[in-house]
Design a protein around this nucleic acid. Structure first.
Lengths: 129, 129
DNA sequence: CTTTACCTTCCCGTGACTGGAAGCCCTATA
DNA sequence: TATAGGGCTTCCAGTCACGGGAAGGTAAAG
């Protein structure tokens, strides 16, 4: 399998797949012409990575997850802990964004938004009330 | 005012203030010894920037906001539009995170998290069900 | 044989900083 | 007056996870 097919089947751009090889997440062998020759197992790994990334895991977390996935003697507790930590960090991000959102929504609501210059949004930014 | 005082009064790290000068957001004059000599107006701008950044505006949006702030003949509609677009992008981010969160929470809930290897989290990542 | 599509490596750019090195400047104390 | 410390300066490199694009080799189609 060449990189193009792997890209379309995994949903990852070819650039990303090459990058994942660079940082050692996959290690496809090479054909005599120098092309990467992906095995089914490489495709499988890449699809795993695509889904883990889609859940917001960082590359290093993905590396750990892959390691656990390939370790037959893993404890599911280790996976769960990793996922829970990630869940907590997502919750933090959501909370931060919602706090921003609340302030911003109040300001937007207070601004009449016409052609006059006075604007509570700028006022708030300037005065930090 | 030296950079240290401006840093503590604006809440921005000195490094960040130098960076903001690099990209032209502030242009403090220099003392004969080469030190930046911040005026009250510079401090004011930096505090404005700190608050705008805290609301999640990008640097380029901050640049626009500063421009509007200093333009006496601005239309508040321009400010409001900028803020509304930013609000929409925050909503997108929140939605994405909440979707991740939902999937992840389901998986975490389904994983017993003991010393056995079978784990629905890894299963989901592997099979993409 | 030519075109076209695909593959390769390499290097630069992104956003918004952060860390660290090397060196100048200013103040205070022994 | 020597020195120790802290603060200031510039510059370079690294972060994270890629994406864009150049220069060139290779394969499949007409």
């Amino acid at each position: 399998m060449n990189i193009g097919e792997v890209a379309s089947r995994s949903g990852l751009p070819a650039k990303t797949i090459r990058y994942y090889e660079d940082i050692g997440l996959v290690t496809p062998p090479r054909d005599t012409n120098g092309y990467r020759a992906f095995r089914e197992s490489d495709l499988h790994k890449l699809a795993f990575l695509a889904r883990a990334r889609a859940l917001g895991f960082s590359i290093e977390e993905c590396r750990l997850l892959l390691g656990l996935y390939e370790d037959e003697s893993r404890a599911s507790a280790d996976v769960k802990r990793l996922a829970q930590e990630h869940l907590a960090s997502i919750d933090e991000k959501i909370a931060k964004l919602q706090s921003m959102r609340a302030t911003l929504a109040t300001l937007v609501h207070a601004c009449h938004g016409d052609d006059r210059p006075d604007c509570p949004i700028l006022q708030d930014l300037a005065e930090g009330t």
